[in-house]
């Protein structure tokens, strides 16, 4: 079964292993000593939001997605009912 699959497989898995490692390690090396960066960003962004609206800490999601050259920091804030009712 896997032998048959191998016939149609386009790329050796070792190539994928190398690429995944290269991407991962370039990020990990750059982030040495910055383990707290995401937490710091989250806290400071929350503080800014809190100055204007009351948001429950559980309604804030922080995600990081790494792609080849870049990382995306995604901050998802669920607005409370009272604010959502306002017209922006």
């Amino acid at each position: 079964m896997s032998g048959l699959f191998a016939l149609f497989r386009k790329r050796p898995t070792a190539d994928l292993a190398r690429e995944r490692l290269q991407i991962l390690l370039s990020h990990e090396r750059a982030s040495v000593g910055q383990e707290g960066l995401i937490i710091t960003l989250r806290e400071e962004i929350l503080a800014v939001i809190a100055r204007h609206i009351h948001v429950d800490r559980n309604d804030v999601q922080v995600k990081v997605e790494r792609n080849g050259e870049s990382s995306i920091l995604e901050i998802d804030v669920t607005m409370p009912e009272s604010v959502r009712a306002l017209r922006v």
């Binding site: 790329r11 050796p12 898995t13 070792a14 190539d15 292993a17 190398r18």
Partner: peptide, 9 residues
Amino acid sequence: RGDMLKVED
């Protein structure tokens, strides 16, 4: 066979 990282990799 491409199933394992090579020395050079």
